[in-house]
């Protein structure tokens, strides 16, 4: 390999960038799983909605797309709350398979609903910073990716402050640790369900905005594969554990990019599942998984 370290460093940075998207997805999934023990395979559709909301308002308003985070996150929180109330609440506790099947229906509804409005052509948009790069040692880094990594970090810090310092955040954590106990302490668990689901969807929406800003293309069907990888990540990183989701997301981002580098791009999707199956063979509960259903 010519260039050695510099090339590997560059690949690692691409891994870090794609890891950011996975981290946001997996954190949301784990938050939801922690509180509700629900498996929503349609989570990737929130990511997709995030990209389209960003795209639509960017074309409409011409605002700096990073500002649109303040639009995509609240809209997706709303969407998440509605989906939870209408679809997941009625089947809560009827089994994991039912949850998976209902998400299948949701996938069809969201994907084709968006396709009806925006057609299923591939879209992309251009960030105002698209042409700026910063040299870090021998590697050229586009400014956008540095912002994306920073934004992800800020979102995670905000989330952690919310969960640890605010009353509502503490209530969410309490419901996650012990649902019945939380109920006995007078916490409205169902409201926490709705809120958590909303926050999870909001994180996916943020990931969608970052996806679009980075110049990657998207269409209505782009969400399913990242979401399923998100599940692989939370199984690997431990169900309900947010640090696990962050480490797992980063790991999958890196592994994928190094696999593409060494084995070729066609193995990029398959590798996460191979990793998942290998880990489950060794430890059927996942790497750090203990509790959960």
């Amino acid at each position: 390999m010519d260039g050695g370290i510099a090339v590997l460093g560059q690949v690692a940075f691409w891994g870090l960038y794609s890891g950011c998207i996975y981290i946001l997805l997996a954190t949301g999934l784990n938050l939801i799983f922690g509180v509700m023990k629900v498996v929503n395979f349609a989570h990737g559709e929130f990511l997709m909605l995030g990209t389209y909301i960003t795209f639509f308002f960017f074309v409409l308003s011409g605002f700096n797309p990073y500002l649109l985070l303040f639009l995509s996150i609240p809209i997706l929180i709303g969407a998440g709350i509605i989906v939870e109330r209408l679809c997941f609440r009625p089947i809560l506790g009827t089994g994991k398979l039912n949850e998976i099947f209902i998400s299948l229906g949701l996938i069809y509804i969201f994907q084709n609903g968006v396709a009806m409005v925006f057609t299923d052509e591939w879209r992309s948009m251009k960030s105002p910073f698209a042409d700026l790069t910063i040299a870090v040692g021998p590697i050229q880094l586009p400014l956008d990716y540095i912002i994306i990594v920073a934004v992800t970090a800020i979102i995670l810090v905000c989330l952690s402050v919310f969960l640890n310092r605010t009353t509502t955040g503490k209530a969410i954590r309490a419901s996650s640790q012990n649902r019945k106990g939380a109920m006995l302490m007078g916490i409205n668990v169902e409201r926490m369900d709705m809120l958590t689901f909303g926050i999870g969807a909001g994180l996916a929406g943020a990931a969608g905005t970052l996806w679009a800003v980075s110049g990657q293309v998207f269409n209505p069907y782009m969400g399913s594969v990242p979401a399923i990888k998100g599940f692989a990540i939370i199984i690997l990183g431990g169900l309900g554990s947010i640090p696990g989701a962050i480490i797992g997301g980063l790991a999958i981002g890196m592994v994928e990019n190094f696999t593409a580098f060494f084995l070729g791009g066609s193995w990029k999707d398959a590798i996460s599942f191979i990793l998942l199956i290998v880990v489950l063979l060794v430890k059927p509960t996942g790497l750090f998984g203990e509790e959960g259903e």
Partner: peptide
């Protein structure tokens, strides 16, 4: 260098090609 149909992130593949 192959890539998956519908791929939108070619950075690693291109880095590999550049080398």
């Amino acid at each position: 260098e192959p890539f998956k149909m519908g791929e939108s992130d070619f950075r690693t593949v291109l880095t590999s090609v550049k080398s």
